[in-house]
């Protein structure tokens, strides 16, 4: 490990910056003459072990880009982040074994069955056969996947597919679980299963980072929250520290207006 956990810090994000080159078409769509867009601009925050940290922000704020950098899918232009002490820049392979990443952009091949995919991704993370078998029984029963274990994923409902993605992303019992918009596109029943499971994971001592634009989800699940607007962290702390006696929604819009310079 490059750095020891300091004061329970399991994820330390340190000045992350990411820019993207805009194509001419994208420049026209975004009505800008700039060739590069700053998606994340010097973002720093800390998530502690056993807590749920929420990244809250509007669409295009840089939440997904941040999570993609943390999951090592893309590299930051500047800055670094440490997950369980491992650098996402210098040790991305080690980071991948410590995290479970779930996002709508990562798909499962519909040709395979949940049973096959669970075993396959377990092997990709280097899990043993006995360990996998035990974990599969437990997780499949927990999410009601056991009845569909041998049905091809393409023949299952959207909710069931989401549950399988979730189960597959944590097949290797990661220390840190990163969820991009965990309840997006889910029906109320499946969304409840997912949120309950996140709380259960937290009770099991896992650390979770999630991104969302839903205030109630943050209020219900998160111990700490970071508000991100235009790629910059504009607030960070426990819910009480950030809100200061008002609701999260009220506080968010107060910050949003001050950052964007919008009159009341």
């Amino acid at each position: 490990m490059e750095t020891d956990l300091f004061d329970g810090e399991i994820v330390r994000v340190d000045g992350l910056r990411k820019t993207f080159t805009l194509s001419r078409k994208q420049q026209r769509t975004e009505k800008t003459g700039l060739k590069r867009k700053i998606a994340v601009d010097g973002l720093s925050f800390t998530a502690r072990k056993g807590e749920i940290y929420g990244l809250l922000g509007p669409n295009g704020a840089g939440k997904t880009t941040t999570l993609r950098m943390l999951s090592t899918l893309i590299k930051p232009d500047a800055g670094d982040a440490f997950i369980c002490g491992e650098s996402i820049v210098r040790n991305p392979q080690k980071v991948r074994d410590k995290i479970g990443f779930m996002t709508s952009e990562l798909k499962l091949d519909g040709f395979f069955t949940p049973d096959y995919l669970f075993n396959f991704f377990g092997e990709m993370h280097g899990c043993g056969k006995e360990e996998l078998k035990q974990r599969k029984e437990e997780l499949f029963a927990r999410f009601g996947i056991d009845r569909f274990a041998n049905v091809r994923v393409k023949d299952l409902s959207t909710g069931m597919k989401q549950k399988i993605s979730l189960v597959v992303s944590i097949v290797h019992e990661p220390e840190v679980i990163i969820f991009d918009e965990p309840t997006n596109g889910l029906d109320v029943v499946t969304a409840k299963v997912v949120t309950d499971f996140l709380l259960e994971l937290k009770n099991m001592g896992k650390s979770i980072i999630l991104s969302t634009h839903i205030f109630s989800l943050v209020e219900k699940l998160c111990d700490r929250v970071g508000i991100i607007i235009d790629g910059k962290a504009v607030a960070d702390g426990t819910l009480q520290e950030v809100c200061g006696g008002v609701t999260l929604e009220e506080k968010f819009f107060e910050i949003y207006r001050s950052v964007k310079g919008v009159e009341e």
Binding site: L73, K94, R96, K107, L108, F121, H125
Partner: peptide
């Protein structure tokens, strides 16, 4: 096909070389 469907990215977030 795997790249287009996003199933390759799912493998890329695992620790496989």
């Amino acid at each position: 096909g795997e790249k287009e469907r996003g199933t390759l990215a799912t493998i890329l977030v695992t620790s496989v070389k």
